[in-house]
Amino acid sequence: MNITTFKTLVLRETWENKSLTLAPLVISAVMIFSLIVGLISGQMFISGEGLDDVIKMEMPDVEGFEGKKIALVIQAMMGGPLLIGMLFVLFFYSLGSLYNDRQDRSILFWKSMPVSDLQTVMSKVFTAMVVAPLITALVALATQLLSLILFTPVIWMNGGSAWSILWAESSLLTVMFNDIAIALMVGLWMAPVLGWLWFVSAIAKRSAFLIAVFAPLGIMLVEGMILRSAHFAKLIGQHFSQIEYIVQGTIESGHPFTLMQSSGFWIGLVVAAMFIGLAVYIRRFRDDSY
């Protein structure tokens, strides 16, 4: 696969889908703004009291509560909303990626270029699974840094040492690693859903969104009525509950790769690959694209 071609295809995705970069930036701006408001009102609340007293007052049962935890809590608080935002962005990105260009007929322009449909679809998969998580991770890291910086003067004002409470224990390298690792693992965890969305995106003649959402619901309903069972719903629920591995793994083992111990994760990847393969095939051979 030609590297220049592939790079151009991925760039094309970012041109069309501004939300890949815009959404995390907006979420980050909102969080930073809330943090500033929170810090100012918190400072008014703390007033005369020393910061350490306030922390002990809030979390009295934590013995020897150290700055390390503060830094990690800040980091988790700042990263979480960005990851949730990423899930939404990826949902709509994937659903539109093989559908919108058929609606506005620009597929005829893209198909007039010497690019195979496999390359086209893979550029979208790469954008969703690698580019979007990396952007999210970078924005998360910047947001976390900025919030530590914002905390610093507050700690100073309250007579604490920002260095020992925040910065010395913030383990920025670990956080950076985890930001990237978590975002990538969340993307991989979502892969079967994205695969389904690409499949719908490639096959739907209209109302891709309704098909993407109501086809699975319909399967659940039919299964419930005919077989009086809910295996399909359970299957999906089980997959979604695997997000626990990412959260727990990060808290307990310090990295999110514990998700890889789950067989469901690997089955999800196989399902994703199957859907992506189908999407390529449909994109290549469907007739009514023109």
Binding site: T5, R105, L108, S112, P114
Partner: peptide, 28 residues
Amino acid sequence: VCFIADVAVLPRWLKVSQALDFVEGVHP
């Protein structure tokens, strides 16, 4: 081989400079 199928199949969001960048990137 290249083709123009009908007019106005260029996507509305595409900038002129991006159109040039794109074709330059994918077409030898």
